[in-house]
């Protein structure tokens, strides 16, 4: 689970299939899909979105979607 990563920690996406179609498509557009390495940059308070970095670009996604992404710590 994505949220097991703390800010500054890195991981690799193992499974993204549980995420809703629209979000999955948008992440794919940004080049974020299974196999992508990501780094959690910061986590907003009160269950707010998280900011991740992948291949040098920063992307904000919601916590509830992040939770559905299977990540392996590296």
């Amino acid at each position: 689970m994505f949220t097991s990563l703390k800010a500054g920690e890195k991981g690799k996406i193992v499974d993204i299939s549980h995420v809703g179609n629209l979000v999955k498509r948008r992440l794919l557009d940004l080049g974020i899909t299974e196999g992508s390495e990501i780094c959690v940059k910061c986590v907003m308070p009160f269950g707010g979105p998280i900011m991740i970095e992948s291949c040098g670009q920063c992307v904000g996604i919601r916590r509830k979607e992040a939770v559905q992404i299977e990540v392996e710590r590296i």
Binding site: G20, V23, R62, E65
Partner: peptide, 11 residues
């Protein structure tokens, strides 16, 4: 229910 939030944060 559908809501989508994925945002690119430019440098």
């Amino acid at each position: 229910q559908t809501s989508l939030f994925v945002i690119e944060l430019p440098p």
